[in-house]
Amino acid sequence: MAGGGFSRLPDGSVVVAIRLPAGPGSTHVRVLVHAATRPRALTRLRNLGLRAVYLRGNAEPPTPDEITAVLHHPEGVLWRAKLDDDTESWHPIRRLLSPATA
């Protein structure tokens, strides 16, 4: 079950954080999206191929560090697999969605 939340920024935009299943053999990934509104953030993810993405509630809003990370990324969409490891870097969403290379 995916969890997530959002934070509204002073300029009116939002940062949405969603925890998604990573697939077989993995636990979850945390995805961050910066957009003008919550629906637009979810639309950005759906346009990337993550069709079944929904935000229900605000149980896991982004932390201040997560907000800073996504605001400083040019695309405004990041992910990280090790949710409890602050030393792992955030990755561009393209790395998650690209096919694995052998």
Rank of each mutant, 00 (worst) to 15 (best):
W90N: 13
R30V: 08
L9D: 10
M1R: 09
E66C: 05
T87I: 05
R51Y: 13
P21D: 14
V77T: 11
S98L: 08
L83C: 05
W90I: 10
V77R: 02
A17D: 13
L45S: 04
R8Y: 09
L97I: 01
T63W: 11
W90H: 10
A81K: 03
T68P: 07
I93R: 01
S98E: 11
G25N: 13
M1E: 13
L45Y: 04
R8Q: 13
R40Q: 15
H91G: 05
D11V: 05
R46C: 03
G57D: 09
V33K: 08
V77G: 06
E88T: 14
H73N: 12
Y54T: 13
H73D: 12
E66Q: 06
H34S: 07
R80E: 01
A100N: 06
N58W: 02
P24L: 13
L97D: 00
G25M: 09
R38E: 09
A81R: 08
W79V: 00
K82R: 14
G23M: 01
P10G: 12
H72A: 10
A59T: 15
L50D: 00
R40S: 15
S89K: 04
L55R: 03
F6Y: 12
G76S: 04
L71R: 15
V53I: 05
G4E: 02
K82F: 11
G23Y: 08
R51D: 14
T101F: 05
R46S: 10
A81D: 10
G25F: 03
P99E: 00
G76K: 02
T43Y: 08
L78G: 00
T63Y: 00
L71K: 15
L9V: 05
P92A: 02
P39L: 05
S7N: 13
L42H: 02
S13R: 15
I93K: 01
R40L: 15
V16D: 06
P62D: 01
T68R: 15
P64W: 06
I67R: 10
S89F: 05
A17V: 14
R30E: 07
T87D: 11
A22L: 07
G49W: 03
E88K: 12
D86H: 08
